[in-house]
Amino acid sequence: MANEMMNRNDFGMFDPFARMAEQFWAPFDKTAQVLKTDISETDDHYQVKVDVPGVDKQDVKLTYRDGMLTIKVQKDTFEDHSDQDQNVVMSERRSGTVQRQYQLPNVAADQIKAVQTDGVLSITLPKTKAAGDSQIEIQ
C-alpha cells in the first residue's frame, strides 16, 4: 500500500514512467510463469486449486512426500504451422517445466484425490490425526 501511494502524482494517477518501466520488464517477470494457486484448509482436509490452462492432465505430475506436495507441469514445445511464411509478429506462449511445492503436514497420502476440469487442477488432501505433543515425565 505504501509503495502504491508513493507511485501516485498530485492528480491521483499512477506515475506514467513507473507504469512504462513495469511494462518494459514484464516479459522477464518470473511470477508470470508460476502456477497460480489457492489453498484452503478445514479441520479435516486441505483444498488446493491450481490454474493449468491449456495443459493436458498427462503433463501434470503430483507427489506427496514428507509433508510436501509437489506439482510439476511440463508443457512441451508447440509449433504453429498456420503462418507458412514465418511472419510471426509476437509470440508469448512458452514451453518448459514449472514446479511448485507446498508444505502441507499430516495428510493421509493414500487418500489424496485430484481432478482437472476447465484448466483448473483441484486437489483434496485429507488430514490425519497429528501426533500430539505430550508431556514426558522424567523418572
Score class of each variant (00 low, 15 high):
residue 64 Y to H: 05
residue 97 T to I: 13
residue 80 D to N: 13
residue 108 A to I: 10
residue 18 A to T: 08
residue 72 K to A: 11
residue 12 G to N: 03
residue 87 N to T: 10
residue 93 R to W: 10
residue 17 F to N: 14
residue 53 P to A: 02
residue 48 V to Y: 01
residue 127 K to Q: 04
residue 70 T to D: 03
residue 14 F to N: 12
residue 61 K to E: 13
residue 11 F to W: 10
residue 26 A to Q: 14
residue 109 A to H: 03
residue 51 D to L: 13
residue 124 T to W: 02
residue 7 N to L: 10
residue 108 A to M: 11
residue 46 Y to W: 04
residue 46 Y to H: 02
residue 66 D to A: 05
residue 134 S to Y: 12
residue 134 S to Q: 14
residue 10 D to V: 11
residue 15 D to I: 04
residue 112 I to L: 04
residue 109 A to G: 05
residue 22 E to I: 07
residue 38 D to R: 15
residue 63 T to N: 06
residue 17 F to G: 10
residue 105 P to E: 00
residue 27 P to C: 07
residue 18 A to C: 06
residue 98 V to G: 01
residue 94 R to C: 05
residue 17 F to M: 12
residue 48 V to H: 00
residue 52 V to Y: 04
residue 28 F to D: 09
residue 11 F to G: 01
residue 86 Q to K: 12
residue 38 D to E: 15
residue 96 G to W: 01
residue 62 L to V: 03
residue 128 T to K: 15
residue 131 A to W: 09
residue 56 D to M: 06
residue 41 E to P: 00
residue 20 M to D: 12
residue 99 Q to F: 02
residue 100 R to S: 11
residue 57 K to P: 01
residue 135 Q to S: 12
residue 130 A to T: 04
residue 92 E to A: 15
residue 30 K to P: 05
residue 32 A to Y: 07
residue 92 E to C: 11
residue 139 Q to T: 14
residue 78 F to P: 00
residue 70 T to M: 08
residue 37 T to Q: 05
residue 38 D to F: 08
residue 128 T to I: 15
residue 78 F to N: 04
residue 45 H to S: 11
residue 8 R to V: 09
residue 11 F to H: 08
residue 69 L to F: 00
residue 54 G to M: 03
residue 62 L to C: 03
residue 133 D to P: 04
residue 81 H to E: 14
residue 118 D to H: 11
residue 18 A to L: 11
residue 60 V to M: 04
residue 14 F to D: 14
residue 58 Q to T: 14
residue 133 D to T: 08
residue 104 L to Y: 00
residue 91 S to C: 07
residue 122 S to G: 07
